Amino acid sequence: MPRPRPQHPPARSEISEQTTLGHTYVRSLMRSQLRTALTALAALVLLVGPLPLLLALPAPEAAVWAVLGVGVHPVIWAVAHWYVRRAERNERDFTGLVER
């Protein structure tokens, strides 16, 4: 006779009971989310960080506003978009691990 399936998958019960294994699962998710956040921060520092040096160069005021208005916002939007997609994927992967 086949064994009945438990109502909650083992990983989920490990997390809810706060066992060492459950703690390891949650820490794994937290580490992957931290790694994603630090990668996004590094990208912003590398792409937007040198902007004050660029703006210190003698240039017409219209060029400065063009760099600030047209150049920076798409970069910030792209990094933010990547970050959200990556964070959601991390959570989906974690949920898939817990649900199995």
Rank of each mutant, 00 (worst) to 15 (best):
P4I: 08
P58M: 00
P74C: 09
V70R: 13
Q18V: 08
R85I: 15
G96T: 03
L34F: 09
L29W: 12
M1T: 13
V45M: 06
H23D: 12
S28D: 02
E14D: 15
R85Y: 06
R86S: 11
A11C: 00
V45A: 07
A11F: 04
T95E: 14
R89L: 15
L44C: 11
P6L: 05
P2D: 11
E88S: 09
L21W: 08
E17P: 01
E99W: 02
G71K: 06
V48F: 10
T95H: 07
P9I: 03
P9F: 02
H8G: 02
M1D: 10
S16K: 11
L34M: 12
A59I: 07
R3T: 15
P2M: 04
L54A: 13
M30W: 14
L55G: 06
I15A: 01
T39F: 02
W65Y: 07
T24V: 08
I76N: 12
L51P: 03
W77M: 11
V75G: 04
E91M: 13
L44R: 05
T36A: 10
A62P: 00
A66I: 01
W82E: 04
T36W: 00
S28I: 00
W65V: 14
A11V: 07
L55C: 10
R27N: 08
S16M: 05
V79C: 07
A43V: 03
S32N: 15
R100F: 12
E17W: 12
V70Q: 10
P58K: 03
R92G: 04
P74S: 04
A37E: 14
E88V: 04
V72N: 02
